[in-house]
Design a protein around this nucleic acid. Structure first.
Length: 819
RNA sequence: GCCGAAGUGGCGGAAUUGGCAGACGCGCACGACUCAAAAUCGUGUGGUCUUUCGACCAUGUGGGUUCGACUCCCACCUUCGGCACCA
């Protein structure tokens, strides 16, 4: 008896498939396209981990299933290969970042190949290679031409450990997303992409993505942080009526303003305090607040501290003056960096006013009653305006509009929208990234490198000393000529955030070898959008927001016909062990290669798909893996035991008895697996259905119809093909087939076969199951009711009781209500 | 604090539209095969009580709707995730 030799089977078929090129994208344009994509990996030196195995296994089931269902599938793979680890290896070990990366890429790809995923390797791409990054530069120039890439001096996030700046999205709780170091602020001139121009469209687009998880959409909405209200312009009498504008979501409370607060960094602060009696004190106070880190300043429980500048501001509608304060809780990078204080109707303002003895003026009255005086807390609810001049008696929701309009009329502000989203800071003071294709000329300023001169290649003659951006050490790179005037010029030495590289790679797969353009719009039309995108939740805001932004810009430029890149998003859960995420530092990792070595890729894939539905976290279990290996071994032995059957295949005669039962089981299984894989992505229950079919096959009597048995075995192998592709292929050929099981059409089921002739119904009394009843499916309600009432057990239970009501749910149960 | 997701046997999980809770797998127990072990095959397996028949309890907690609730409604508890002085 042969035994299941996973390693040999897998090596054999991987070789055969590669030689025949079976995973190349189907050229048959008459078929419906399906683009399924797993987030491409960063090829770290450690190679693949179980999280990778999980995404790829999920993607491969979908790809194979769609192919068998007659779709033309695009299923590509590549690497997100720029990034800091390569550079750190260069600093620590003196290796060349390119060689180091290429070596890791090769190892990574070999590991992926051993999983037997059906990728079209012809479309493989690596973001760090010039044939890719020249088009990253091309796209940067497109943004530049469209006014969406600009340079400005700003206070930016700086990670001291990574020695580079970071985008807002890459700072988590004041720490660097990569290395966890405390992020500080630095005043630097940097490149930004104008993602804020797309804030509303990025929000609106979310409403057209029903197949995205709600929580990812919520996270993006939170991040964008759209806030509707009004801008209100006060004036500063002592500075020649210089305007100072605040943003508020509650313009209806404008008559309740009793003070203004500016951020310590506000540009008017310097002029306001100059010459004031308490100037020295104020200056010291401002310095101290500026020194406090972002997190200290913005922690919810941080004490609100402020100081009166001694200056006053004039109210645009009443003409009254109110004091101007400076306080730590007002942030320069949100809204206008200045707020109006309405203590009666804002909790924060209330606290602040109480602490510093500022006046509190009620301007909103609840509809049912009066506010207590003095207030114990701010009243933030709805109501009617009071103490508000011409607006008295107006509903506050109406007043929001009326007061905004009045402000607009007086040219003192008007309706306004503010976002939490900031422009995307993309400069990085690092070597191993895509060079920004800009040249600085003393005469012409910042000049873009012409597209036909791309790529701007990364130089080799650089020094990695860990002290400065290595690019600045390359004379051959820095010294150049101005594309505009031909005079001497310097190159930009910052590289781009690697999230730019991954913001367009899904387009490149559609036309991966184009050497003229990033992609031909016709090829995009052929394949985009991505029908199913699979990846981790950690990119809910980062990669997924940036990619949506890029897509919208490319749409506006007429390069792509879609304005959302991913129709459906599947966020797979983490792989845990002992309840914690696998990580080297915790020492709870399981090596995919070791598992493949020991049990085979089919077992690894099957376990990871069987142990939990894809979106949920998955608890690793060694014995669970054993179980899946045993199952595959059982399938192998079962088919091999019946190998003879396929030499002289008898016609199936499933008319009666066990054959009919098995035949029904086949069709039920097809339905279950088709729906679970095709509609719900519940691979775990699909696998359990196949297990049940195999159990039924093993219980099938020796003397029952052989043809039906052969059908069952064949169907089982076909259904298993997307999950355990190597074993399925091996068994398919053992059954005497010449073609690949993966080219088989997906089986269809006969709906008539799903209808049983007899059904077992539960008989309940007052909702408790007391007996079972087997009836023909055709039996009508009355018959079923009578049968149920005449069951011995039921009669016993009913003795002494009166039947009040009988509910019959056809094919399910009978419930007798009695007391 | 706000928003979101989830709580089901010893474990992973199933129950798709309000209709027999615990499919499938793991683990465990017993048995067959074996000199023995591994592998394999078979049987059983939510809890309590009961010799049996069976009865009762049970899907985080407490209520509600319903003939009937893991599923719907209300309140609460726990865990995880996101946002958080955002004006």
């Amino acid at each position: 008896m042969q035994t299941y030799q996973a390693k040999e089977i897998e090596a054999k078929w991987q070789r055969v498939w590669a030689e025949a090129g079976v995973h190349r994208t189907d050229p048959d344009a008459t078929k419906t396209k399906f683009y399924t994509l797993e987030q491409f990996p960063y090829p770290s030196g450690e190679g693949m981990h179980m999280g990778h195995v999980r995404v790829y296994s999920i993607g491969d089931v979908i790809a194979r299933f769609k192919r068998m269902n007659g779709y033309r599938v695009l299923h590509p793979m590549g690497v997100d290969a720029f990034g800091m680890p390569a550079e750190n290896a260069a600093i620590e070990r003196g290796v060349n970042p390119r060689d180091w990366t290429l070596n890791n890429m090769k190892k990574f790809r070999e590991e992926q190949e051993r999983l037997g995923i059906s990728y079209d390797w012809d479309r493989y791409l690596a973001t760090c290679l010039p044939d890719y990054y020249r088009f990253t530069q091309w796209l940067f120039l497109l943004f530049y031409e469209r006014g969406l890439a600009y340079r400005k001096k700003a206070s930016v996030n700086w990670c001291p450990d990574c020695a580079t700046v970071l985008a807002n999205e890459q700072v988590e709780n004041g720490k660097c997303w990569r290395c966890d170091a405390e992020v500080t602020k630095k005043e630097l001139e940097q490149w930004f992409l104008k993602i804020t121009d797309y804030a509303d469209r990025l929000l609106e687009g979310l409403d057209r993505l029903p197949r995205w998880p709600e929580r990812v959409k919520t996270m993006q909405r939170n991040w964008i942080g759209r806030s509707e209200g009004a801008k209100v312009t006060f004036t500063l009498p002592e500075l020649n009526d210089e305007p100072v504008t605040v943003f508020t979501t509650r313009p209806d409370t404008l008559y309740g303003v009793t003070y203004l607060v500016l951020a310590p960094e506000h540009p008017l602060v310097e002029r306001l305090i100059a010459g004031k009696e308490k100037e020295e004190e104020l200056r010291a106070f401002i310095e101290q607040m500026k020194k406090e880190s972002e997190i200290e300043r913005t922690a919810a429980d941080a004490e609100k501290v402020g100081m009166d500048t001694g200056a006053v501001a004039r109210h645009p509608l009443t003409g009254e003056t109110v004091p101007v304060w400076i306080a730590n809780y007002v942030l320069m990078d949100y809204g206008t960096g200045a707020v109006m204080g309405v203590p009666a109707h804002d909790e924060r303002d209330f606290q602040f006013a109480r602490k510093y003895g500022l006046p509190i003026r009620h301007v909103i009255q609840p509809r049912d009653g009066e506010l207590e005086n003095p207030l114990a807390e701010a009243y933030t609810g709805e109501g009617v305006l009071i103490n508000s001049g011409p607006f008295d008696g107006m509903d506050n929701r109406e007043a929001i509009r009326a007061i905004s309009d009045q402000l607009a009329e007086k040219e003192a502000g008007g309706p306004a929208v503010t976002y939490r989203l900031r422009d995307w800071l993309i400069s990085r003071q690092r070597y191993w990234g895509c060079p920004i294709p800009i040249v600085y000329c003393d005469g012409c300023g910042a000049v873009p490198v012409p597209k036909e001169e791309l790529p701007v290649l990364l130089p080799e003659d650089v020094t990695f000393d860990g002290k400065r951006n290595p690019l600045t050490t390359s004379e051959s790179f820095v010294q150049t000529t101005c594309p505009s005037c031909g005079g001497p010029a310097r190159r930009e030495t910052d590289t781009m955030d690697t999230f730019i590289d991954s913001s367009w790679y899904f387009f490149r797969y559609a036309d991966a070898k184009n050497d003229r353009l990033p992609f031909d719009p016709e090829r995009i039309r052929e394949w985009l959008p991505v029908d199913e995108y699979i990846g981790g939740i950690e990119h809910a805001v980062l990669h997924l927001l940036y990619s949506r932004f890029f897509t919208k810009v490319l749409y506006d430029a007429g390069l792509v016909h879609v304005d959302e890149p991913f129709t459906s998003l599947l966020t797979q859960g983490m792989v845990l062990r002992d309840g914690a995420k696998m990580s080297k530092s915790k020492g709870n990792t399981v090596s995919p290669l070791e598992i493949i070595e020991r049990y085979g890729a089919d077992t690894a894939r099957l376990f990871i798909l069987f142990a939990a539905p894809p979106e949920r976290d998955l608890e690793w279990s060694d014995s669970g893996v054993e179980g899946c290996y045993r199952f595959l071994g059982r399938v192998f032995r079962t088919v091999m035991r019946h190998e003879e059957l396929f030499r002289n295949r008898p016609e199936a005669r499933p008319e009666k008895g066990p054959a009919r039962d098995l035949y029904r089981r086949i069709h039920r299984t097809i339905k279950k697996v088709t729906e679970d894989v095709g509609e719900r992505y519940h691979f775990n229950t699909a696998i359990s259905a196949i297990m049940e079919l195999m159990n039924a096959i093993n219980e099938y009597p020796e003397d029952a119809d052989r043809g039906t048995l052969a059908d069952a075995l064949e169907t089982g192998v076909i259904l298993l093909a997307p999950f355990a592709p190597h074993l399925a292929e091996e068994l398919w050929h053992a059954m005497g087939h010449e073609t690949s099981v993966h080219e088989q059409p997906w089986p269809s089921y006969d709906p008539e076969m799903l209808v049983e002739e007899e059904v077992e119904m539960a008989v309940q009394i007052n909702g408790r199951v007391r007996d079972k009843l087997v009836v023909p499916v055709t039996a009508d309600r009355e018959t079923v009711e009578q049968l149920a009432l005449n069951q011995e057990r039921i009669k016993n239970h009913l003795s002494g009781k009166t039947v009040r009501k009988v509910i019959v749910v056809p094919k399910k149960l009978v419930n007798i209500v009695a007391n």
